[in-house]
């Protein structure tokens, strides 16, 4: 799940090296924390959070295949 978010974020931003993803695993849930360069925040959030919403959809599908609920947190 972490690798999915990492791939998406690195593909979207201008500074892929600054992308950091942490995964906090629970029994039934998982939290993915994404950090990007300040100038790239818009690239992973989008207008009205549209990009973040789409990333969450894909993450939810990936997590469901492992029987988990996933949360994506984007850190500033």
């Amino acid at each position: 799940m972490k690798d999915l978010v990492l791939y998406m974020a690195q593909s979207l931003v201008d500074d892929p090296n600054a992308v950091q993803v942490r995964q906090i695993e629970g029994t039934h849930s998982v939290i993915i924390k994404l950090a990007v360069a300040p100038d790239d925040m818009g690239k992973v959030i989008g207008k009205q959070g549209k990009i973040a919403k789409a990333m969450r959809t894909l993450l939810t599908i990936a997590a469901a295949r492992e029987g988990k609920r996933a949360t994506l947190e984007i850190q500033s």
Partner: peptide
């Protein structure tokens, strides 16, 4: 089926992320 979602919403999101990455490339 999960990739399609209710009324194709998941597919729309998949396409959106895909478009963004394609646009970048």
């Amino acid at each position: 089926a999960a990739l399609i979602g209710r009324r194709g919403e998941a597919l729309t999101d998949l396409q959106y992320i895909f478009n963004l990455i394609m646009n970048k490339k």
